[in-house]
């Protein structure tokens, strides 16, 4: 007790010290909570590869900032394929998504979901659904795809809404003979996911992936360039 009073006596302006102490304490708390909050926000699930955005969606970081999680696109969808991410879903909470394997985009020509968006997170500039980029279909299962086994399942080719253009059969020759391989034209594919939905396997051999994941990105090294 005696120590305390003598310490306080040394302080020229005890009131000033009190105020400063309070300010620094609050600054400290604010800094710690900001860091913690930032860490929590960064660790919230980013969008999983299986989760696709509605047509016209801005690139993911911008979409995440522009989308105000209102769900107007969800209600505008006449086929009810869109959901708003719940807490436990693999996308930022409240953002709209669809899962191609469950219910693919039907590619309405008037794009009602993008029209409904109040903020432009689904870009109003996308007016032609065939120019939409929800992802790109990639035939990932070269060992499971029935066409690779010499059958002509070709269901993915036949259900494609941009039939004959986005996916077509290309013959390749190997030791089993001539195989008809479903081949995606990445410039035509909108990533609607109809092929993934209808793949007859238990897990689809063809799936829609975000473009950079599905196609890779050209490298900066000289070997990767041409």
């Amino acid at each position: 007790m005696a120590d305390k009073t003598s310490a306080a006596a040394e302080v020229a302006e005890p009131e000033r010290r009190k105020v400063f102490r309070k300010i620094f304490r609050q600054l400290g708390v604010a800094t710690v909570v900001t860091m913690f909050g930032k860490a929590v926000l960064d660790s919230r699930p980013a969008r999983a590869a299986s989760v696709l955005r509605p047509p016209g969606a801005l690139p993911e970081p911008e979409f995440n900032a522009a989308c105000i999680r209102c769900g107007l696109c969800v209600e505008a969808c006449p086929y009810d394929i869109l959901h708003l991410a719940r807490w436990s879903d693999p996308a930022p909470t409240g953002t709209p998504y669809f899962v191609a394997r469950e219910d693919p985009c039907r590619m309405c020509t008037d794009i009602p979901c993008a029209r409904a968006c109040p903020t432009g997170a689904l870009s109003p500039l996308v007016t032609d659904i065939k120019k939409a980029d929800m992802g790109v279909a990639v035939l990932v299962g070269h060992e499971t795809c029935l066409n690779y086994k010499g059958l002509t399942c070709s269901i993915c080719v036949r259900v494609c809404p941009i039939i004959g253009e986005a996916i077509s059969l290309k013959p390749i020759k190997n030791e089993r003979g001539v195989l008809q391989i479903p081949t995606v034209d990445s410039n035509k594919c909108t990533g609607c996911g109809t092929c993934e939905k209808h793949c007859v396997l238990a897990e689809a051999a063809i799936r829609v992936l975000p473009r950079e994941l599905g196609l890779g990105v050209e490298g900066a090294q000289s070997v990767g360039r041409w």
Binding site: T34, G37, K38, L41, D42, N64, I68, P92, T93, G94
Partner: peptide, 16 residues
């Protein structure tokens, strides 16, 4: 904090 974190993280902080 929610406004500051929105600025820092590029996402809607309170909406999480």
């Amino acid at each position: 904090l929610s406004l500051l974190l929105s600025l820092l993280s590029g996402t809607l902080a309170w909406e999480a």
